[in-house]
Design a protein around this nucleic acid. Structure first.
Lengths: 218, 218, 218, 218
DNA sequence: TATGAATGAGCGTTCATTCAT
DNA sequence: CATGAATGAACGCTCATTCAT
């Protein structure tokens, strides 16, 4: 009998909140900015959220959950499908693309998260995000070493730091862009760099000799 | 233009401000927290700074200037000294160590900068920082390619993204630590990874064949 | 003028309102607390009451009317029945008991009234209540003096102040209790005190001599 | 060097707060009403009080402390001076007058206290106040019985209830008045009533016979 | 009629900034 | 110059009341 809840209210508010949080940061964002933008009343905001911080948390945690699902799904599909190096090469790129695509679609939230909402209270978000991406990287690297795709002496700890750091950086750049760049070519070049390294012939010799020496000594 | 009366007051206030900004974020930090911690009066604060934001800006921009100087100096010393691959290997590590050391010494400000003070108003700081580190990387990579140290077909754009991303990540981890980790071994492992890449023998073949094909088609 | 549709709703709401007003005070009580407790909707509340204050007024004024009736009835029964001092003694106690019993049965509303709902807007309630009880006392005292039960020189004004004050206090204590105390013995002791006073033999002499002197002078 | 604290600020605010609390009740009183009336800024209010409730508490508790001191002092002076019934009679009146005078001087706060600030949160104030006055009455009664001034069979519990109830009522009336009434004659009449009681000759006989009977049975 | 979602005026409190001393 | 008391604009949040369904 009562007026049915407007199913769009919360969505409108979340959208508006994301925009305003991104524009002003969590602290500077005013509830009224959000409600005005959403075309809702102040009361409606508190009908859906406990507080400004709660709205922020809901936005980000919802995204993190979806991202988590997206990553897990992609990895599982990958691990059960990839066997040959040629496929591996391609599959990795596919996953990366899928995730970067997801980041682009949600670039607002990603920015929000990367800036921790501008409050030390939510700094844990950025840490969790970074840790999550590195753990995922480790998993793939271990699988690759085990299947003879990566060199057997690869230091997985350091490699995961480098790779996740590189992707971290790419995501940071990506979500700040006005226009969506060509992600595929970027990913391909990245793989090239990460797989074969930067060393030229002469430097490689030096490195190899060092490795040999270290091997003798050990 | 006249020198502020008590030059120690400003130093005390800057120190206190850095601490309080780090603890609470720019918005949540209260002037009184800063002045209490500095043992100075509120009046003294406004004698030295236009506003809370001004204090924040001064802290970070001062650091950025010093960091800039530190990097440039290190690079110049390097470019004029390194000629041989063996030295290059070592020199790079030395520079990285020096810069990471500087970051550690100023880990408070670095954190402040990386978190943008919790306000989108200072998001540019993080961008500048990232851009600066990448530009520097590019400069070194270009030099390395020119001198036959890096492989001649190295994509400097992408390589600089990867390398600066990796270092970005390391710095983010570093400045959050309670205790100073052993930086040298970390830097060595990083170089190994970045120079020789992750690919094992089979994968490398695949990559090489692709590169050859691409070369033919081109 | 049309009878409200669900007459039980109003009763539920009044009951709940009394409870909530008592628990939190008029200002702090929330309409939602009341409607939740009554198992009714907010709309139902405004169907029966103009406002929160209206509900409060209805609760208390209803009670005052009933109390008024109760007192008048008791008094009338008394005035038409009591003739002899022995009966008077007993009758007074009966009336007091009846009224205190009524107060106990309605201790919630009485408290509400005594605390004026926590708002100066309803301070008149407490005044009316006090005035009513004093007027009633006066009526009985005048009757008693007229019938030779009280001493002829009794100052009815002051005596009514004392007596109603004493009962006022008893009621205040009573309605705050968890368990119903033995009212009869309390009433008997009260009467003893109010009828024979506190003075011992020596003091009584002093008083008597003063009264005689005053009589002479007058 | 700094601007010295305005010693009148807190006093002005307390005065204004008392007035506004009395006018609207604790809940309805707006900080701005208080500060406007005091000619101070809103900030000044929070310089002296933690919250609105804190201001209320300070007002009342300060008064209770002073009242406490006033009563104790009067009693001590009394107990060490009064020996003879004539003096006792007079001394009691003096104390009562002094205390009623004090109540009149502070009638604003007393009203505030008696209405509990209109919030159940401060109901304890009225209870404490009542308890304090009754305890004091008990002390005096016990002293009077011991010194043969009151009748030896006086029920101190009930007598204290009656007496403090009567004074309670007087105070409630007093503090609501526009003009100060003649307190002395009121107090004298009160004493008369409380000391010799209300009973006329015939009723007194009935009472006496009852008491005798009760004595036999016991 | 009955419901409870939606509204928005209203107020307590904070704290950056000013300025009298 | 230095101080810290004083200011008041700003904003988060509440909740009585309305009204679409």
């Amino acid at each position: 009998m009562s007026r049915p809840p407007d199913p769009h209210a919360k969505i409108d508010l979340l959208r508006a909140a994301e925009h305003v949080f991104l524009e002003h940061g969590l602290e500077k964002a005013r509830i009224e900015d959000i409600t005005n933008r959403a075309g809702r009343s102040k009361g409606a905001f508190y009908l859906h959220f406990q507080s400004k911080e709660d709205a922020f948390r809901q936005i980000v945690e919802t995204f993190v959950a979806r991202l988590s699902g997206c990553i897990d799904e992609a990895n599982d599909a990958f691990l059960s499908a990839a066997r040959e190096p040629e496929n591996f090469f391609q599959r990795c790129a596919d996953i990366d693309l899928e995730i970067l695509e997801f980041m682009w679609q949600n670039r607002g939230v990603v920015q929000l998260m990367l800036e921790g909402g501008g409050s030390s209270e939510f700094g844990y978000l950025i840490d969790e995000f970074a840790e999550r991406s590195r753990e995922n990287t480790k998993r793939l690297l271990a699988w690759g070493v085990e299947h003879g795709i990566y060199r057997p002496d690869l230091d997985v700890e350091v490699a995961s730091l480098v790779i996740s750091g590189a992707y971290d950086r790419i995501v940071r750049d990506l979500v700040r862009r006005e226009r969506k760049p060509d992600l595929r070519s970027l990913v391909m070049a990245l793989q090239q760099m990460l797989l074969v390294g930067a060393a030229g012939a002469r430097l490689r010799e030096v490195i190899d000799s060092k490795v040999r020496n270290r091997g003798k000594r050990a």
